[in-house]
C-alpha cells in the first residue's frame, strides 16, 4: 500500500496543505477551485483511458452542485460532509441511470448523447423559476461538524476539506487503475470485441466507469458550489463540459496525479491570461489546447514519463 507514488502523494498533499497558510486568500480560493475541478477531470481520465470522451460531464457536476444548493436552501442542511456525500450520491445515481443508455455508445455518438443529456438539464434549470432560473441562487457557507468559520478562515477550511477529499479520491482511483476493471480500459479502447470474447461484459465495465466518473464529477460540483457560494445553470452548459475535456487533454491520461497537475496548470493559465490579456484569455486557452494536441498528444503527464524513460533502464516493467 505504501508505494513510492503514494508516499510522494502524501508529501505533496501535506506540502500543499501547509503552503496554503502562507498564500493570499485569492490564491487559496483559486487552488480550491482547481482541486475541486481536478476531481471531475480524474473521472474524465477514467473514461478517456477506455477511449470515451463525454461532452456532457457537466451534467453530473451540475447535479452535485445543485444538490448542495437545494439541500442547503430547502432542507437547511449546512454540514459540509453531509452536503458532499449527498452531492456525490445524487450525481452517482444520475450517472447510474444515464449509464444504462450511455454505456452502449462509443466515440462521437457517446460524446453527442452525453452532450444532449447535459443540455436537457440546462434546459430544465434555465426555465424553472423554483430552481432559480438563469440566475441560479446562492449557497450559504457550510459548517464542518459544528465548526462554522467565516471570511479567510472559511477559505482555508474549504481548502483543507477539498485537499482531503482529493487525497482520498486519488488513493481510491489509484487502486482502481491497478485493478482488473480499471486495467481493462486500454483493452476496451484497443479491441472491444476481444474483451467480450475473453468473457466479460464491456458494457458493464463501461457502466461502472461512468458511475465512478459521474460520482467524482458530482463531488467536484458539490465542492465547487460550497467554494463559489453560488450555483447557476451554466454549470450544466456544454462549455463547462468542454472546459473539463480541455483540462483532461492538457493533463493526459497517464496517472492520477495528471488530473491535479493539469487542473492546476489550467487555472493558473486562465487566471494569468485573464489578468494580463483580458481580451484574449479564450484565445490563450485555445492556443494552449492546440499546442498540447499537436506536440504533447499524451498531455503534460507524458513530460514526466519521457524524462523518466531517458534515464537508463533500471528495471523492466515488472510486477508480481
Amino acid at each position: 500500500m505504501l508505494s513510492r507514488a503514494n508516499l510522494i502523494g502524501a508529501v505533496l498533499f501535506l506540502a500543499a496543505g501547509i503552503i496554503g497558510f502562507f498564500l493570499p486568500p485569492w490564491l487559496v480560493s483559486l487552488l480550491t477551485i482547481a482541486f475541486a475541478n481536478a476531481l471531475v477531470v480524474l473521472g474524465l481520465i477514467i473514461l478517456w483511458r477506455a477511449g470515451l470522451v463525454p461532452f456532457g460531464q457537466a451534467l453530473y457536476y451540475c447535479s452535485g452542485a445543485y444538490t448542495v444548493a437545494l439541500l442547503a436552501r430547502w432542507a437547511g442542511v449546512s454540514d459540509a460532509f453531509v452536503l458532499l456525500i449527498a452531492g456525490g450520491l445524487v450525481a452517482g445515481i444520475v450517472a447510474f441511470l444515464t449509464g444504462f443508455l450511455l454505456a452502449r455508445y462509443r466515440e462521437i455518438f457517446f460524446a453527442m448523447l452525453s452532450l444532449a443529456m447535459s443540455m436537457i438539464l440546462y434546459g430544465v434549470l434555465v426555465k424553472t423559476e423554483t430552481l432559480g432560473s438563469t440566475d441560479g441562487f446562492g449557497v450559504d457557507p457550510p459548517h464542518f461538524l459544528g465548526y462554522a468559520p467565516h471570511g479567510d478562515a472559511l477559505g482555508f477550511a474549504l481548502y483543507w476539506f477539498v485537499l482531503v477529499v482529493c487525497a482520498i479520491s486519488a488513493l481510491v482511483i489509484g487502486v482502481y487503475f491497478k485493478s482488473v476493471a480499471g486495467a481493462l480500459a486500454v483493452p476496451i479502447r484497443d479491441n472491444e470485441i476481444r474483451v467480450e470474447f475473453l468473457g466479460i461484459s464491456v458494457t458493464r465495465l463501461i457502466h461502472m466507469k461512468l458511475v465512478i466518473a459521474g460520482t467524482l464529477a458530482g463531488v467536484g460540483g458539490a465542492l465547487a458550489a460550497m467554494t463559489i457560494g453560488h450555483v447557476d445553470p451554466n454549470m450544466s452548459y456544454w462549455t463547462t463540459s468542454g472546459g473539463f475535456v480541455f483540462v483532461t487533454i492538457l493533463a493526459g491520461a497517464g496517472s492520477v496525479a495528471a488530473a491535479f497537475v493539469g487542473s492546476l496548470v489550467f487555472e493558473i493559465v486562465r487566471s494569468f491570461a485573464f489578468a494580463v490579456l483580458p481580451g484574449f484569455w479564450q484565445m490563450t486557452l485555445g492556443i494552449v489546447l492546440l499546442l498540447t494536441i499537436l506536440f504533447l498528444p499524451e498531455g503534460l503527464g507524458s513530460l514526466a514519463t519521457r524524462f523518466r524513460r531517458r534515464k537508463p533502464d533500471t528495471k523492466p516493467v515488472a510486477t508480481s
Binding site: 487502486v175 482502481y176 491497478k178 485493478s179 482488473v180 476493471a181 480499471g182 486495467a183 481493462l184 466479460i200 458493464r204 465495465l205 461502472m208 510486477t319 508480481s320
Partner: peptide
C-alpha cells in the same frame, strides 16, 4: 468470479 465489484478491487497483476 464474474462480479464487477471484485473486478474493481483485485489487482490485475
Amino acid at each position: 468470479d464474474g462480479r464487477f465489484i471484485s473486478a474493481a478491487l483485485r489487482s490485475v497483476h
